[in-house]
Each structure stands twice: as C-alpha cells, then as structure tokens.
Amino acid sequence: MATGFLTDTTVCIGCKACEVACKQWNQLPADGYELTGDSYDNTKQLSGTTWRHVAFIENPKKRRLTGDVDLVALAEGVTEPLPGGAELDALGRWAFMSDVCKHCVEAPCQQACPTGAIIRNEFDNVYIQPDVCNGCGYCVPACPYGVITQVPHDGRAFKCTLCYDRQKDGLEPACAKACPTDSIMFGEVEDLKVIAAERVQELHDKGYSRAYVYGTPEVGGTGGIGGNHSKFILMDEPETYNLPRHPFLPQEKVKGGTIASMVAGAVLGAVVALAFRDQGR
C-alpha cells in the first residue's frame, strides 16, 4: 500500500493552516520573522524546517476587468462571455498552492543518500531516518524540487515525513487534517489518482481547460522519477508554482559517467606509459 497527498490548488484559500499544523505537530523551529516584500507570503519556500509551504501567486496575465462587470456572477463561476465585454482569466486571479515533498516513486534523494538514512517506509513514503543521517548534504542538490535542506545548528537534512508517526497510529497527516477546504487530501495513491482525474474532468467541464494533474509520469514526475506520491491539481504552467516541468532522475547517468571515466583512465594510463617510452634503456 502506498499513501500520498493530493493537493487541489483550485480550492486552496491560502490560510496556511497546513504550514502551522505541520510546524506544530512536527515541532519544527521558527524560521525567523522576515518580510519578503514580494507578497503576503513571508515563508517563501520549503526547507528542512518548513515541510509545507503555501505559495501566494499573483498572476495578472490577461487579468483585466473591463466594462460593467457583474462581480456576483463572476464569483459564482460564470465562464461564458461576461456582460459588458468583461474578461477574466478563470481562476488565475490569485492562486495559492500548498507545496510539500513529492515522495517520488524513484526518489533521487534516496538514491543519493550514502548512509542509507533515506528509505522507503512501509507506507511507501520517502523517509529520512534522523538517527542515521550524518548531514553530508548530498540529497540537497539531488532533489529536483528543492525540498530537502540541511538544518544549520542541527546539521542533518530534514523534510516532510508524511507524518509517519501519525500514520502509524492510523491518523491522517497534520496538514491534511487541518486543511479547512480539503485542498489537501490524504489517502492511498491509487484512490487519489481517481479523485484527481475526476476533479480535473469536472474543472474541464466547467470551462477551466487548463487544469491538469502534476506529479504523473508525464508531467512533474518524469525522467526516470516515475511519478510522485504527492500530486497536485494545477491551473497554470508548472513554473508559475516554482515546479520543474520535466524533472529528471540525476542518478540515471551514474553508470554512463563511470564508464566514460574508465575509458579516460585507460587513455591517461596509456599516455603515461607512452611517456616512459625509450626511458627504460
């Protein structure tokens, strides 16, 4: 059985309850009080001490209200040509997205980890064993989504555990529990896939043709990663949410690089041997 998240960004209201619940349950330290000046989002990104992060995306593309706009009709989800020639870019006016570890099917961090600290646990989640990690930091640049970081002062690397302790007790993760709109859903990956497909179809039927699932083997879980156990329903290009479109499994080329190095070793050895020519006599 594999468990995971489905984060439906179309119903996220940006309350950041998931961030707070995650910090509380996992007893994560504060990241300091810093105002970015970019938006109302002042926690910026995922890190070793922020395992859920809600992005506030202000995207004014085509966001133009023209003429006599019926705001009530807009709020009710009218997508046909609006009265008075008004234009509105669907749900894009202000997007929220609660980001989290993608729990890749073939996880680059897990493959990179030299100590075996990063494992797949019995729920098929990618889990860092804190008692084994020695803080080499190699998982950090390996992650194609910028999820893991090393926590200064502690030295070890941390990320979302998918609330391993809560799952052991039959509870859903803290973020999913706290989410007031069910933007964050927790469950078995196979069930979530069905829910995601239905929701995207529903959005398409309503006229939101840009809705899609991120974290499939086609988008966001590509290049040998084989999909993500944390999927997202997005309404804009992945890059808008700071996500790569076609990430890749960096370890795919370790074998190729090693073979190239062996060839180079043989050539350099031959060159050195040639340099000894005529010297033996």
């Binding site: 938006s39 910026k44 890190s47 004014p60 966001r63 133009r64 209200l65 950090v140 992650c143 700071n242």
Partner: peptide
C-alpha cells in the same frame, strides 16, 4: 480598463518564470 495588480514582480511584461525569483532547487551547502 485597469490592471488589477501593479507589483513589479508580477508585471505581465516580465518574461522570467517562477516564484519571485526564489530558486526552485537548493544548492549544495
């Protein structure tokens, strides 16, 4: 017609993608 946002980082003229220039991956420490 009026633009509903005027923040420089979300200026429609800007061509760069991403989230306020925050790196999408983390560098090695």
């Amino acid at each position: 017609s009026v633009e509903t946002s005027h923040h420089p980082a979300t200026d429609p003229e800007r061509k760069d993608k991403g989230y306020y220039g925050i790196p999408p991956i983390k560098h090695a420490h």
